[in-house]
Design a protein around this nucleic acid. Structure first.
Lengths: 200, 200
DNA sequence: GACAAATCGTACAGATGTGTACACTTATGA
DNA sequence: TCATAAGTGTACACATCTGTACGATTTGTC
């Protein structure tokens, strides 16, 4: 893979996001993406196989960046409860952000087709983050900062309080992107409510 | 509108659900729906205008039934807290049910197109239910059964605890339909946590 | 600089969707 | 019973997407 090819790939994936944003998943044909990227559609077919393949790589690279960001937000703090508090705004901004929402819409459109996009999103998203949060909660439990029988259920409750139905409302287009202030508010409230529910 | 026409409409809308279920929103063409219903596509265009129009009526009739169901669940109990407890499983079953999820997927696919489906879902769904819940909470507050500064925020918290990210996970196809037991469990847990957070 | 590989631009066949048109059939109502 | 309205089945023009093909051009490598 030459540097030029890497740049080409970035240009193509940027074009894919642009077209996805303007036209939506159904109307985002490989042809239109190729044109936007000044690339040949034959190249796209060679590289990604088909539309699902292209968007699957989008999901994966997006998730890789996101996971890295979250991992940093968590591991900067040695103190688990503080780490949880720091995680909130970052995670909330990510999952309600424009890119994540567009990819979720794409996955919803792909369910009756291949269903692979949703699987990729879940695998790289929740299935990667939830274990991190469970670890955090386990450490908090061991140092008697929180109290719960079922770590998994506690993690679920945290996600529910933090994210709630924001994602689906963003996905169906009835909720504009959240402002920084809204994100901070909601994350703080979710954290406080979580602590209230699970404090010893 | 003759009875025969009403039956025809029901047949067409049932066909629309069938095709939607099998092929997804993008692939559900008016032509395929017309064929499935043994109807002429010209009739569909006359009656509904276009694809969005057809699915918008689906959303609206589905929401009308759902709201009626919820209103009954609430108003059977004079006691607001009991009504809230009774509402949980009904609401959860509705919003994670196959029809609601298919319509949400359709709305996600329609965002970059007309965006009207999402608006209809929100108008007939959350925007209709939330006021009912807020009324319930206000009554509970007046009889000192719960305590909160902001009714709207409390209602949000209730929805977050009850529904969480189940809808989006159902929509992208990574979560199978919930069983009766799962619905009952989750509703009970959400109710208990809500009470714990907002009891005086 | 020359050769080989990768990529572009364009074209193509086949399939499908949209929205409209029209002759023929069925239902509605006086 | 008969005239009018409504609906069916089929066809059409137009547009678009998919996946493939191929000569021309650019890029990487020796």
């Amino acid at each position: 893979m030459t540097p030029k090819q890497a740049a080409r790939r970035m240009r193509i994936e940027a074009a894919a996001y642009e077209v996805l944003s303007e036209a939506g998943y159904n109307s985002a044909s490989l042809l239109s993406i190729a044109k936007r990227a000044n690339a040949s559609n034959e190249t796209l077919y060679n590289w990604y196989g088909n539309k699902q393949g292209l968007f699957r790589t989008l999901v994966e690279s997006n998730a890789r960046e996101a996971t890295e960001l979250l991992r940093r937000a968590i591991e900067e703090d040695a103190e688990p409860v503080e780490a949880l508090e720091a995680l909130g705004p970052v995670l909330l901004a990510l999952v309600t952000g424009e890119r994540a929402i567009m990819l979720n819409r794409a996955a919803a459109g792909d369910v009756s087709d291949t269903g692979t996009l949703g699987q990729s999103i879940a695998a790289a998203g929740r299935d990667t983050i939830a274990p991190l949060v469970r670890n955090l909660l386990r450490r908090a439990q061991e140092s008697n900062q929180i109290e719960c029988n079922d770590i998994g259920q506690a993690a679920d409750t945290y996600f529910a309080l933090l994210i709630g139905d924001l994602q689906i409302r963003r996905a169906i287009g009835v909720l504009p992107p959240l402002t920084q202030a809204e994100i901070a508010d909601r994350a703080e409230r979710a954290f406080k409510q979580f602590v209230e529910l699970f404090s010893p």
